[in-house]
């Protein structure tokens, strides 16, 4: 189990990396040696017994492996904040309660990673004229930016860009689709993963 505080301590991180390098070298050395050796004998722990009608072979499922979000990653940001995206009403740039909650958690997360900067993309649905929507997308991005700044995120860490109606998240037509496209998305800059 990776520990967040451990990973953030540079010295320990270096140790982990060194260990990894050593392990990799070890693997390389092993494979080179293998060429000279006879094939390995079957594992002793599992006796080779042909299955019979009375003794069925029992195969346990493979050991479970689950990916985990590395702290400081985009996946971690999304998981911790609940979402990287907040949504808006028609022709509106007002942040509703769910949006404020998400942005509040985004601000908390950004407080923990002061070296990470963000770009907030403002988007609209396609039921507006092109240039108006560019301006509306700019409003939405700035509404999110201003909220993060009010929560203590240094405004110089936040840039905005409006895509208007040019980059919908969902293709199609109808209120369900438009609601998903009226959004501001917080993109991490300088974060890995």
């Amino acid at each position: 189990m990776l520990n967040r505080s451990m990973l953030n301590r540079p010295k320990l991180k270096t140790t982990v990396q060194l260990t990894l390098v050593a392990a990799l070298i070890g693997v390389g050395a092993c494979s080179t040696k293998k060429k000279d050796l006879p094939p390995p004998p079957p594992p002793a722990s599992e006796p080779v017994v042909p299955p019979t009608a009375t003794t069925p072979t029992k195969v346990p499922p493979p050991a479970g492996v689950q990916s985990t979000n590395i702290p400081g990653s985009t996946a971690d940001f999304v998981a911790q904040a609940g979402s990287d995206t907040v949504y808006f009403g028609y022709d509106s740039y007002e942040l509703d309660d769910p949006s404020r909650t998400i942005l509040g958690k985004q601000a908390e997360w950004l407080a923990r990673y002061p070296n990470i900067t963000v770009t907030i993309e403002g988007h609209t649905d396609d039921r507006g004229t092109r240039e108006y929507n560019l301006a509306l997308g700019d409003r939405r991005a700035n509404a999110a930016k201003n909220f993060l700044a009010a929560q203590g995120v240094d405004a110089t860490r936040i840039t905005t860009i409006s895509y208007g109606k040019e980059r919908p998240a969902v293709d199609g037509s109808g209120e369900d689709v438009w609601a998903k496209n009226r959004r501001a998305v917080t993109i991490l800059v300088g974060a890995k993963g």
């Binding site: 700019d138 509404a143 409006s162």
Partner: peptide
Amino acid sequence: FSMSAGGNT
């Protein structure tokens, strides 16, 4: 032309 600044155009 138009310019947007801080949500105002």
